[in-house]
Each structure stands twice: as structure tokens, then as C-alpha cells.
Amino acid sequence: MKKRIKANWQMYLLLLIPVVITFIYKYIPMYGIQIAFRDFKASRGITGSEWVGLQWFEKFFSSPNCMRMIKNTFLLSAFTLLWSFPIPIIVSLCLNQLRFLKLRKLAQTIFYAPHFISTMVICGMIKIFLSPSGGLLNLLMGTQIDFLTEASAFRTIYIVSEVWQHAGWGCIIYLATLATVDTSLYEAAKVDGASVWQRIVNIDIPALLPMAILNLIMSAGALMNIGFEKVWLLQTDLNKAASDVISVYVYEQGIEHAKYSYSTAVGLFNTVINLILLIIVNRIATKHSDVDFV
């Protein structure tokens, strides 16, 4: 054993910097989570600040918008998942059966494109397209609606743009899986007179199923993990009834108002819920299928 460690000293040397960086910037913050239970004062440091127990959590749960934020966070990600999970599967099935190979390549290139654009630019485009005076959508519908001030439209805007941007990219993993399907299966199916739809149902879908389940599990584990960026950029005072989510609140309280302890407590609450979801989903998954992760 000692000999093997010695023989591998170069490997440990390579690992040194990444390990140190990860320790400092990932593990020390985990230790710093305790400020959620303290009244953090910069001058007194993390461990020197006064212990206050669950005060910040109580403050969060008794704040007027607490239930609204939890509800919005959950609904926004649940509805997003409802659309962004099946669409890439359906698109991949269609692409995979498309026999015009050049068109297929071109389609893939186009489908991937929006994924490479910054959220900032996407939100800029959303603002322009939805503008009440001369925005593309209003021009096409012949209306002058200011969609971003309507709380009822917020989730639709978020989900449609999310699917538009990332569904194409989401196909990659399914297309890669379909590429591993034994081509002799298709030939045998053809000999048997199976139509394209029968091939999809009997060959492609079973081939995709394990990957699809794995993907679903991973996303279900992140159900309370709605991204900060897009919601923050698209939020207006008037659509807050639907756009008020936990991650934005954590940012506002922590960075804008410098309420370090309170923000950390709210963030921790969110992380813990996520972790519980992840563990539950993982349990169910390992019980009911042969896929395994983590």
C-alpha cells in the first residue's frame, strides 16, 4: 500500500490544486452554514457571532410572502419539468427516424443553438418580443398587451422560453443513446413489415426508457432548485405574485440588504428540501428500476 502511494506521488501532486480549491471554496462554505443559526457580525467572525438558534427560520416562516414563495418556487419548476422532460424525448425520436441525414445534421445544429446564448440575452429578447408597443408577439396577434406585467402570464413566458432554449440541447443524450441501438434490430423489424411508428414504439422507446427515467429522477430531485437568473431578470413589481421565488429572495436579502444570517437560513431551508427530495427519489428509483446514480 505504502509502495503504491509512493509510486503515485505525481498523481497526488496533480490533484493538489483542485483539492485545495474545492476545500476552500466548497467545504469551508459548508462549515459557514452555521451562520444561519447565529447572528453574524463581520467583526466577530463566523464562530464568534452570537448563537440565536432557529430565530431566522422563524422569521422566514412568519414573513407574509413565505408561503407564496414556496408555492411559486415549486409550481414554476414542476410545470417547467412537465414540459421540458417529454419534449426532448419526442423530438429525439422524430430526429432519429428522419432518413434525410443532411437535414438531420442541420436540424441538430439549429436545435442546439439557443442553448449557447446567455440568459441575459435571452431575457433581452423576451422583453423585446413581448413589448406592448411593436413587440413581435403583439404585432402577430394585433394586440398591445404588456405580458411582463401580468402575473398570470409569467409561468408561461418562463416555460416557453426555457423549452425553446434548452429542449434541443436536451436531445443530445437521447440521440446518443439511440445511436447505440443495434441496427440489425431495425432491419429485422423492416423484414417483418413494421412501420416507422411500430419501430419507434417497439425498439426506440424501450431503448430510451432507462435514460429517460434517470433524467426524470435527477430533475425531480431538483424540484425546488429554480434558477435565479431568469426569474430575477424577468421579474417586475406587477408579476411578483407568480415570480416571487426563494432564490431571488435569498439574493435580495443577502447581497442587496447584507442580511447574511437571514439569507443563509432561507437558502439552507431550500437546500435541505432539495436534499430530502433527492434522497426520496433516489430510494424510489433504486427500488423500482435497475438504474442507479449518485
Partner: peptide, 28 residues
Amino acid sequence: DLPGRKYISLFFIITMYFGGGLIPTYLI
């Protein structure tokens, strides 16, 4: 054959699922 490979991998993988969050990271 790297001794400790499993533990070092785990050391990195844990950070995918759990982190300190916005403010504790900001403070460090």
C-alpha cells in the same frame, strides 16, 4: 490503482449535491 481514488472522487462529487449556498460562499 490509485490508493484512495474512491474517497477523492467522493470528495468532489459531494459538492455537486450539497453546497454552502450564496452567502457562506460569498464570505469566503
